[in-house]
Design a protein around this nucleic acid. Structure first.
Lengths: 98, 98
DNA sequence: TTGACATATCGAAAAATCCCGATATAATAG
DNA sequence: CTATTATATCGGGATTTTTCGATATGTCAA
């Protein structure tokens, strides 16, 4: 985990929002075509909710992924996202020692 | 505490370094003219150590202060800095709930 | 009050971030 | 194979961040 990369990724209210939403995917997203609990949240659902362009969301998710804050998995035509609690815990541990 | 302001302030390795140094002022700074333990660390000591211009350091400290991460107090010609543990704890709490 | 030291503020160049629309790619339905 | 849907990537304009040198301000000592 690169602490600066992680902190930068979090330093944006839209990206922070995404991470918050992904904490409780079922509560925050509704899908007709997939099981959010099981699969995760697909990119399109985030796009619909956040009020940013498709390309921006795609780039933000890539950023969050590179920081290790989310993981993504492609299933057919969809890319599913979940939080990566490991990095979030690591971040908190690092900040506690800071 | 504005979480985005705090995260932005932390998202820079020099500023993070300053905050780390201020965790153990006595270990990280030597002063001839003041009692670090009692007064805090004066701006000049940070300037000497960090390898940035005086103006940049002054601005970074202002930024950290505005984020609530440090407090400063003027004593005579010196400005002394200390960590503000309150905000750091608040940040950690917020991230734990995130 | 004048000089020396400590710090703050100003103005700006360079780099990074934010965010978009257009376009590319990948997968599926028909 | 082709159109449609989902996502990724490219190129770029606008804004913010990074960092500096120059200058201003504030304080003390002589």
């Amino acid at each position: 985990m690169d602490i600066i990369t992680v902190l930068k990724a979090l330093s944006n209210d839209k990206r922070l929002k995404i991470l918050q939403w992904l904490k409780e995917p079922k509560k925050n997203f509704k899908s007709t075509h997939c099981d959010i609990e099981k699969d995760g949240v697909c990119v399109g659902l985030i796009e619909d909710k956040i009020g940013l362009s498709q390309s921006t969301v795609s780039q933000y998710l890539m950023l969050l992924q590179q920081a290790g804050l989310i993981t993504t998995s492609r299933k057919g035509q969809w890319t599913f996202c979940r939080r990566n609690e490991k990095t979030i815990k690591e971040l908190i541990k690092t900040l506690e020692k800071l």
